[in-house]
């Protein structure tokens, strides 16, 4: 536009709300398209710094990932959602090895005679290993810090167990679907109840000893029993997963869960 520009005095008057209405309108219309005149507006450094400080407060907050957004959409509280979303990062190595182990089991099942036994042995143990790495001194690098927060203890343990179980169970189900003899949905989930029972057992045992040790004991017991059964010539260790046995697994699981809840209540 032509030569008209604000004088410093006009700018000061305007900023101090001393301009009359018509001048104010002119100034505003001019400021809209004249950047040099805008710089004439007196800037209150203190006010600018304060404004930016509180803006920075919001701007610097980490953006929420898709998992976290999904979880908080599902009705979880913001901090719980963040915790659950962040936990799998702690076990990236475990997640990777789980994929490798399950892939190996699948290959064995497809290539070797009776190779699917390997999957049968492993499927319930995989989530257990994850839980073993979920909580405790020596496993979590930030355990000392985490243990003094109000979240620590049972609550954190259960939250982390859940966040480990979900990917573990999903991976195992996916692998089970790829087994050579999978024909029905039943074949994909036969290991689920034993697996959950093992996890619940190790959590209960973890009340008295270190969680990793507890999971180790429970896992070793499971492998030992299955090994003995298959070595003693029983052709079908899969009998452990038969519908009748599933009933017993279900009873065991609910008993263990009941005990866990009871202990958590009294703790």
């Amino acid at each position: 536009m032509s030569g008209w520009h604000l004088t410093p005095a006009q700018a000061h008057d305007y900023a101090a709300r001393r301009s009359d209405e018509i001048t104010a309108m002119s100034v505003e219309a001019h400021l809209m398209h004249c950047a040099p005149c805008r710089t004439l507006m007196p800037a209150d450094e203190q006010w600018l710094a304060d404004g930016w400080a509180s803006l920075r407060d919001v701007v610097d907050r980490p953006r929420r990932g898709p998992v976290e957004t999904l979880l908080s959409l599902a009705g979880l509280r913001a901090e719980t959602a963040k915790l659950l979303a962040a936990t799998p990062r702690l076990y990236q190595a475990w997640l990777g090895s789980t994929v490798v182990v399950l892939a190996a089991a699948l290959v064995a099942a497809h290539v070797m005679p009776r190779g699917s036994l390997m999957f049968v042995f492993l499927a319930p143990v995989v989530p257990l290993v994850g839980v073993a790495l979920a909580y405790g001194r020596g496993v979590d690098p930030a355990h000392t810090l985490a243990s003094v927060t109000p979240m620590a203890g049972q609550r954190l343990l259960f939250l982390r167990t859940c966040s480990v179980l979900v990917p573990a169970l999903l991976l195992c189900t996916g692998a089970a679907l790829l087994l050579p003899y999978t024909t029905s949905a039943w074949d994909a989930v036969f290991w689920l109840l034993p697996s959950l029972a093992l996890v619940a057992g190790s959590l209960l045992l973890g009340r008295w000893i270190h969680l990793s040790a507890a999971s180790g004991i429970v896992g070793a017991l499971w492998l030992a029993v299955l090994g003995l059964v298959s070595l003693s010539g029983q052709t079908v260790p899969v009998g452990v997963f038969a519908p009748a046995a599933q009933l017993w697994w279900g009873v065991l699981l609910s008993a263990l869960l009941g005990l866990l809840l009871l202990r958590a209540r009294t703790a």
Binding site: L31, T39, M41, L48, G51, R56
Partner: peptide, 22 residues
Amino acid sequence: EAEALEILHRRHAPWLRARLNY
């Protein structure tokens, strides 16, 4: 880039504030 927002804030906040004050 948060720093770019800071520059923009420094450049435009004063006149926007003056105008909103009216």
